[in-house]
Amino acid sequence: MISPRYHREIPQRYRLEAGKCKQCGNISFPPRLVCPKCKSKSFETVQLGREGKILTFTIIRVGPDKFSKETPYVVAIIELNDGVRLTAQVSDCDVDKVAIGDKVKLVFRKIQDEGKSGLHCYGYKAVLT
């Protein structure tokens, strides 16, 4: 991950900062410049809650090179309690026991390494609660 590119996503990846539309209240994660619901361009920064549930998921058995030593791992689409949806790995679990509807919380984890000498890249993963 090239440093500037990694750096600019830190508020979202570390702290789950989102943009709440001042006109219609829709929350965009990551923040956007135009509200997809009402087209307003006025937002306030909010921090998402960390609890939610699994809407759907898969178990990655064949990963890209970067994640090939991590397989099998679960990736899920998670709906947070405030309605925002995101994609995250589900960590620390028996991959064969994850189910749609499972309650999760997001924790701070290392997501990937940029080779042996590059950056450690952090962000959110889910764990079952």
């Binding site: 990551p30 990655i60 791992y73």
Partner: peptide, 9 residues
């Protein structure tokens, strides 16, 4: 940034 970064294929 928000799917692939997290390991999806």
């Amino acid at each position: 940034e928000y799917e692939v970064y997290n390991g999806i294929t």
